[in-house]
Amino acid sequence: MNAFRFLGDMTHLFSVLVLLLKIYATKTCSGVSRKTQELYLLVFVARYLDLFTDYISLYNSVMKIVFITSSAAIVWYMRRHPQVRRTYDKEQDTFRHSVLVAATFVLALIFNDRFTFREICWAFSIYLEAVAILPQLVLLQRCRNVDNLTGQYVFFLGAYRAFYILNWIYRYFTEGHHSRWIPWIAGLVQTGLYADFFYYYFLSWKNNVKLELPA
């Protein structure tokens, strides 16, 4: 495992834990898109189903379990917890996420490495992950004033994908992967979606002011 891949995994893990701890500690989820969280849960379940069929390493299995359980916990808090669910911005979080699920599933049926259950699930999870942040970005834009922790959550999530792209470039040159166009394209789209957010995040950090996204 190269350093980019490891840093990617760590920023990814950190983003999910930051969000879970924020919700757990403050008992609020304002500014957090439940739709994005449900999409991520679906992404993790679709991709990490191989947990039960293919053993790769202890690191791999533990991380998969942590990702599935922590995102399930976030969804559970937002849907079921008596205090947390009342702070959910339901009226603002209106993105039609079922459209994203349907579109990426069809895409996975057409573009996959092999027409098998495992490969279709894998391609679906990659495509869905690329666009899963959209409801969250729309919600952040509507709320204008972004909570520090929510801002950090999106920042680490974006950093994760950027590190993964560096990892793929590194692997491409050191191991010679030639048929990895699915994650390449999806990863570039996914990272591109964050570009705007990153720009305002750095501005707020540089000027030491609260993050605010333009309408």
Partner: peptide
């Protein structure tokens, strides 16, 4: 093979 190496990522 090339299928397995992508599945070792998260």
């Amino acid at each position: 093979d090339s299928d397995d190496e992508k599945h070792d990522e998260l």
